[in-house]
């Protein structure tokens, strides 16, 4: 019996280690291929280069020499779209969370939460389709009406739709944070003659700010790593611009573009995707770790 139990415990440990092995696998895979990339392409020209044009490198006779792998335009494009999406999702998500948690009756809450859950359950490919076939043409026509030129694949369209995708995410994380604030603080503020809004804005939101901030960080990490919306609605060509009406490209779009055909593992084009993956992983990991750390400490502080 004891042997069987021991064997079973071994199986449990093995299963648990899968999660660790996965992380190690991810880090090792992208690190190894990235190092191979950086042995061909100078890291400083990657991280500080302002021109992204990997196509040239496929010419056989100058495989290592040519092709421009400047990361900056991709980073700027990614951050631009992320910022647009946060500009939509943070105020809207927060307003919904505050309304549901502090103002709405439980009946209203019961009616509205399913809507948010539906929005949260829609795959991003569907949002991407909507951005591509519905929102982009609308924005272009609207721009034409107003006399502004909006690119067919604009940062704005991708950012707006991504913002919509993030609303339920931010709303639900913020609501959790607001929920964690003890009622004694609400009563304290109300007891001093605050209106509901004053109690919320001056006491409850400040008290839940760490949780809300963590939610926003997690949302940014999601926006940065989101792929399908930008693949369908943002551009492929890398323009270094912060004009939301122009087409920009993102880190994830370029990973997809570089890897969609046949992949040769000695081609800097293929390897560049892993260098991009490494940057993406590092960026989102930092955001996630900070956010999850805040969430954990914040939860403890009210327990």
């Amino acid at each position: 019996m004891a042997i069987r139990e021991r064997a079973l415990l071994g199986v449990l440990i093995l299963a648990t280690s899968m999660a660790v092995v996965t992380t190690i696998g991810i880090v090792a895979a992208i690190l190894v291929e990235s190092l191979r990339f950086f042995s061909i392409i100078d890291p400083s020209s990657f991280f500080f280069g302002t021109l992204w044009s990997p196509q040239i490198a496929i010419r056989e006779d100058q495989a290592g020499a040519a092709g421009s792998f400047g990361f900056i335009p991709l980073l700027v494009g990614t951050l631009l779209i992320t910022l647009i999406s946060l500009a939509v999702a943070v105020p809207m998500g927060l307003a919904i969370a505050v309304y549901l948690s502090e103002f709405a009756s439980s009946r209203t809450r019961g009616q509205i939460k399913p809507i948010l859950e539906i929005l949260a359950g829609i795959p991003t490919i569907v949002y991407g389709f909507f951005a591509l076939v519905t929102l982009s043409p609308i924005l272009r026509d609207l721009g034409a009406e107003l006399g502004v030129e909006v690119a067919g694949e604009s940062a704005l369209a991708a950012g707006l739709v991504m913002g919509m995708m993030l609303i339920p995410f931010i709303a639900s994380l913020s609501e959790d944070a607001l929920f964690a604030v003890p009622d004694s603080l609400r009563h304290g503020a109300i007891g001093l003659g605050s209106t509901q809004l004053e109690a919320t804005a001056r006491v409850i939101i400040p008290a839940s700010l760490p949780g809300i901030a963590a939610g926003i960080l997690l949302a940014s990490s999601r926006a940065i790593g989101e792929t399908m919306i930008v693949v369908m609605a943002a551009g492929i060509a890398a323009h270094l611009t912060i004009n939301p009406l122009e087409a920009v490209t993102t880190v994830t779009v370029q990973i997809v573009t570089l890897l969609i055909g046949d992949q040769e593992f000695d081609d800097p084009k293929t390897l560049a995707a892993f260098a991009l993956g490494l940057s993406l992983f590092a960026l989102t990991l930092v955001l996630n770790i900070i956010a999850l750390h805040i969430v954990k400490r914040y939860r403890q502080s009210y327990e």
Partner: peptide
């Protein structure tokens, strides 16, 4: 009620200072 509560203050069972 808001007006009422400005005239009638309250101190609670458990101290509940704001995290400020």
């Amino acid at each position: 009620v808001v007006d009422l509560r400005t005239h009638v203050g309250m101190v609670f069972q458990k101290p509940n200072p704001f995290p400020k």
